[in-house]
């Protein structure tokens, strides 16, 4: 090759190898870095979710304690108090729904379950630690035929129609439907 001696060619090759090595190192370093960031985010989300679950359990522990002692009236009052600070918290709606259902106040109970599921779909997700899927499924299975029969007898009764709408909503969410 004219103008280039053997030393130039060797130096050029060495520089090329160094440059390529450096580029490979940089690319693989970035890959490792982005994988690490993705893992960090997933862990952060998991930690935040777990923290939220722990927080909900701590927040509503007095309500659960009152329920365990058979003091459901006091438990409902405690829920009213907590709702002042956390009005959009679905867990309070779930507990309210459960207590009202235990007391036979079915239509109002269904309203609370609907509100809870609208706020947070975890309650119908069988894998969520918050899941109430089984209870909600039982509620729908048991109450839908009863309210259908009542609404059939009294088609003009709007309250019955509203309760039916709520039950259908829960049924669709159990079946995997979205908002």
């Amino acid at each position: 090759m004219a103008g280039y001696d053997r030393f130039d060619i060797l130096t050029g090759c060495a520089l090329l190898v160094c440059g390529l090595s450096l580029a490979i190192l940089l690319v693989s370093g970035q890959k490792e870095n982005s994988t690490a960031v993705a893992i960090d985010k997933a862990i952060e989300q998991q930690i935040a979710y777990q923290a939220r679950i722990d927080f909900l359990h701590r927040l509503y522990q007095p309500v659960e304690a009152l329920r365990a002692q058979g003091q459901s009236s006091s438990a409902l009052l405690k829920l009213d108090e907590l709702a002042r600070r956390y009005p959009q918290e679905a867990h309070g709606q779930i507990l309210q729904g459960e207590i009202l259902l235990e007391r036979g106040v079915v239509a109002e109970s269904i309203n609370h379950f609907v509100r809870a599921v609208r706020l947070n779909g975890d309650y119908v997700d069988k894998l969520s630690p918050l899941s109430r899927r089984k209870e909600i499924q039982q509620l729908v299975n048991l109450q839908l035929p009863l309210f259908l029969a009542r609404a059939h007898k009294k088609p003009q009764n709007l309250a019955l129609q509203n309760t039916l709408t709520g039950l259908y909503y829960l049924q669709s969410r159990l079946a995997g439907g979205c908002e």
Partner: peptide
């Protein structure tokens, strides 16, 4: 009335921890 207890608690006039609810009637 249970409704008044509910509303007074929701309004922050009383706290749920202030009272024992000894009994509640049928609705």
């Amino acid at each position: 009335p249970s409704l008044d207890l509910e509303l007074m608690t929701a309004d922050g006039k009383i706290s749920a921890d202030d009272f024992n609810i000894i009994a509640e009637s049928a609705i």
